[in-house]
Nucleic acid binder design. Sequence first.
DNA 1: ACAATCTATCTCTAAATCAGATAGAAACTA
DNA 2: TAGTTTCTATCTGATTTAGAGATAGATTGT
Lengths: 294, 294
Amino acid sequence: MPNPDQLNAFIAAAETGSFSAASRRLKKAQSAVSNAIINLEIETGVELFDRSKRNPVLTEEGETLLRSAYAIMESHHDFMSHAMALNAGEESHLCLAIEQNVSAQPLVELLVVFEEKFPHIELELLDPGTSDVASLLRSGRADLGLMMEQEHYPKGFMFRGIGHSRKIPVCSKHHPLAKLEQVSHSDLRRYRQLVPRSLDLEDKSHEAQILSPKVWYAESPFVIAEVLSAGLGWASLHEAIVKEQLEQGSLVALKRTYQQDASLQGVDVVWSRHKPLGKGGQWLLNECFKLNVG
Amino acid sequence: MPNPDQLNAFIAAAETGSFSAASRRLKKAQSAVSNAIINLEIETGVELFDRSKRNPVLTEEGETLLRSAYAIMESHHDFMSHAMALNAGEESHLCLAIEQNVSAQPLVELLVVFEEKFPHIELELLDPGTSDVASLLRSGRADLGLMMEQEHYPKGFMFRGIGHSRKIPVCSKHHPLAKLEQVSHSDLRRYRQLVPRSLDLEDKSHEAQILSPKVWYAESPFVIAEVLSAGLGWASLHEAIVKEQLEQGSLVALKRTYQQDASLQGVDVVWSRHKPLGKGGQWLLNECFKLNVG
DNA sequence: ACAATCTATCTCTAAATCAGATAGAAACTA
DNA sequence: TAGTTTCTATCTGATTTAGAGATAGATTGT
């Protein structure tokens, strides 16, 4: 198996067109380059250079093997830059949990830049249902979370608001509510309400949203949107979730007579204080601060 | 720069889960594997294995670096198999010249297999105009040619028929000739004839085809087909060239009253006797014999 | 013809590699 | 719990390898 020094000698000699020039570039003795290339030729059984003239010139076989040699050196450099990135404090794996209610779109644009800046980090994206971001962070499964703001975060977690998302009551355009100019709380109470609810039975955060005595639950807001589209009930969902359906017209937003401010919820980035973020996570966090995630 | 032995030790240890087992697989002393990995760790600055238990287990960083190590070894194997292919007599470059009149389609199917069998050979495809295949072979620019059979090949060339192609007189469906049930030589003589002619002014092989006193020439039969499609003149072209236009109906084949046999021409593979073909060329030649190129 | 520059090769030295032995730790067994 | 096996790290010494320096022979350019 050719070692990197032999390949570097081969490449330098091919590029400079001379073993002596190659030795100067590599800051080695000329005999070292000469030996390296002769050994490579013995090992491969291929005559890489034609020595009939004063300066060696690549044979046809040498020319094609040179391309394979470049490929090896490239993977070597990738390996080393990967190692150096780890040394510099990049994590090897970064897991983001983005609550389904939060629009991932601004983040996705960030990830294009992330890919370029941190090509060696394996990124994992989770999109857990309502409020399960917290448990993913607590268990250490996720490193960084994007979620709707909460009253209390578990001890040991840091958070920071990075934007807002509005919840709006929506229903199918065929639903009786869609016929009304404006809807009041008592209008809504008359129909079945669909409410996003966490897997975690301990989590009571959904209760505050319940208006109607006729309630169904679903974990995913996307599933709720589909049920609504079929004409069944109404729900208060985040804009990001129903953006497309509103544009297509399959769902409609209800105009409210009641106070709207309560429906404006903050979006937080959340991370653990004890499991420090690497370079990649820190960068992403910083970029999140610059965003307004809708 | 990590050398292949270090990387092999790393990979073997990761796969077997033990330095001792790795040393047995690599048929080296256990101390060699241990040293190789420790040196790799020093060189990269990354702790690859967690040694807190009896058996070493890959750290998270080690796991991702392992993937980069595989990539290096893969390019090494590619390099060596490339070298071994050259040793076994594969050429590094193979140039095929296929006359435009010959249907390349059966050959293209062969090339899929070729790519798998000879991944290291650089293939070059030329599609010269009429009868210029010969000069490409003579000059050494091409290694193997597919062309319409000739009376005489230059000395030093081998050839072998591998199929036949029929020449048929065609014109646009709007052309006066298209209205006739059958066409005779004297019908054809009344209209402009388009004739494929080589770049090479010495080449007189086109003269035998000329029927009409009103002649235009073109190098490429494809250009002729386009001129015909515009409604201008008629030409005797190979089936492979006008197959699509006949199916689409933009060109029509003329039914002849005269003898057809003369229009049936052989297709030859041609190669030089003095510039021996490599393994790839030989294989391709053999496969050509099994084909009937139309 | 001469000077400059190239490659291959020789020699010698320094460095790296590796096998074998050993000690200490961990896991398994009875 | 004590004994056995199997593991890793480390030391030592022998062998191999890599590389610098010097030199001879060849090629190119003046």
